Amino acid sequence: MTAAPVFDGHNDILLRLQMAPGRREAIWLTGEGQGHLDLPRMLAGGFAGGMFAIYIPSPAAPGAPDYDAMMDNPPYEIELPAMIPLGVAQPVALSMAGHMLWMERSSDGLFRLCRSVAEIEAARADGAIAGVMHMEGAEAIDERLDALHAFHAMGLRSLGPVWSRPTIFGHGVPFKFPGTPDTGPGLTPAGKRLVRECNALRILIDLSHLNEAGFNDVAALSNAPLVATHSNAHAVTPSTRNLTDRQLAMIRESRGMVGLNFATVFLRPDGKRGTDMGWAPVMQHLDHLIDRLGEDCVGFGSDFDGAAIPDGITDAAGLPRLLEAMAAHGYDAALIEKLRWGNWMRVLRETWGG
Rank of each mutant, 00 (worst) to 15 (best):
V88K: 13
S208R: 09
R321G: 11
P310E: 05
Y76K: 05
E77A: 15
P65W: 00
Y67H: 15
K176G: 08
D332P: 01
N211M: 09
M70I: 03
D303I: 05
S231A: 14
M96V: 06
R252N: 04
F47H: 12
P62C: 01
A233K: 07
G271P: 06
K338T: 04
D72T: 14
P40R: 00
E337A: 13
T314K: 15
A153Q: 12
S106Q: 14
P21K: 02
R273H: 12
A327C: 00
M154I: 11
M19C: 11
T240I: 00
M277L: 15
R241P: 03
D270P: 03
A263I: 06
C198D: 06
A263C: 15
L148T: 04
D270C: 08
K338L: 01
V88T: 14
D276R: 15
R321T: 13
P174V: 01
G31P: 06
Q284V: 06
L248S: 00
H171N: 13
N11K: 06
G318F: 02
T314E: 15
G131A: 15
R115V: 07
P62N: 01
I56G: 03
S106P: 07
H171Q: 13
G98D: 14
D68Y: 14
G301W: 02
V195M: 03
V88R: 14
A316Q: 09
R340N: 07
L187W: 02
L243K: 04
A150R: 15
G31A: 07
A3T: 10
F262I: 01
A317L: 02
P174G: 08
I84T: 14
L80H: 01
G127T: 11
A128F: 06
A53R: 06
A280I: 07
A122H: 12
E136T: 10
D142W: 06
G49V: 02
A190I: 02
L29M: 11
S208K: 10
D311R: 14
M96Q: 15
G172C: 11
V227P: 02
P40C: 05
S302Q: 04
I56L: 10
A147Q: 13
L113R: 12
G191Y: 02
A317K: 10
T188N: 00
G184F: 05
M283L: 14
L14W: 10
T237H: 09
T244W: 02
M277D: 09
P181H: 06
A316N: 10
A328L: 12
G294S: 01
G160I: 13
A125N: 10
N199W: 01
G312K: 01
I120W: 01
K192Q: 13
D311K: 12
N343I: 09
Y76S: 01
I290P: 06
L86E: 14
R202E: 03
S95R: 12
W163D: 08
M250D: 12
M70Q: 14
R340F: 03
V282R: 04
G49H: 02
D332E: 11
A316P: 05
I336F: 00
T183G: 04
R292T: 13
P40W: 04
V173H: 04
L323P: 04
A280L: 13
R241S: 07
F111I: 14
R292G: 02
L156T: 09
G299D: 05
A228I: 08
C114V: 13
A118M: 09
L221G: 09
L248G: 00
I168E: 10
L267T: 08
G299L: 08
R340C: 08
R193S: 13
P57I: 10
G155K: 05
I120K: 03
F262G: 04
L15F: 07
M135Q: 11
L80A: 08
